[in-house]
């Protein structure tokens, strides 16, 4: 078992790509006498993050049964897909042109992580959609023009038919 600052243990010594590490050492978490539930200090050890890990970083639901609003997404001069959101549910995703190639799957992956970020800021799916026009211009995710027309599709099936071309 590693003891202390093993370079193999990236958790301790590296900062990774995105998240700052919460300072778990600062509250005496290593003290074996502090079992969870034995006082406020021990409860802090099990923070909101530890108690609700499924909420941190969650993206919007990638499917919905109802109608969706959507915006075209381009890379250079080419349409690469549609960004959609439900007006009534916390559902949103990027629909690449079908069949998706590697770039389309990478764009979809990029948008998933962007949605994680937007949702983490407290935006609804619709607010997130409307925050993108004129803001997003990414080599992987594509570009949403400031004057991108917002359209409505009665269902995701219709949007996918559109993506099939």
């Amino acid at each position: 078992m590693d003891g202390g600052h093993s370079p193999e243990d990236g958790y301790r010594t590296d900062r990774g790509g995105a998240e700052p590490d919460p300072s778990r050492e600062a509250d005496g978490a290593g003290d074996p006498a502090r079992a969870p539930g034995t006082g406020q200090g021990a409860f802090d050890r099990w923070s909101d993050e530890a108690l609700a890990p499924v909420l941190v970083g969650r993206s919007y639901v990638p499917t919905t049964a109802g109608p969706v609003l959507y915006l075209p997404v381009h890379r250079d001069d080419r349409l690469i897909g549609y960004l959609w959101a439900s007006e009534t549910e916390e559902a949103s995703d990027f629909q690449p042109l079908l069949p998706p190639d590697t770039a389309g799957n990478a764009a979809r992956g990029w948008w998933t992580m962007e949605h994680v970020r937007l949702r983490g800021e407290g935006l609804t799916a619709l607010e997130a959609l409307r925050s993108c026009a004129g803001r997003v211009d990414d080599p992987h995710g594509g570009r949403v023009d400031a004057d991108a027309p917002e359209s409505r599709a009665p269902s995701l099936e219709e949007l996918r038919a559109l993506a099939r071309g």
Binding site: A18, E19, E49, A50, A52, V56, G57, V116
Partner: peptide
Amino acid sequence: QGLDALGALARWT
């Protein structure tokens, strides 16, 4: 640390 699976992916990228 309280990350979900997507957060873990981002954290280690």
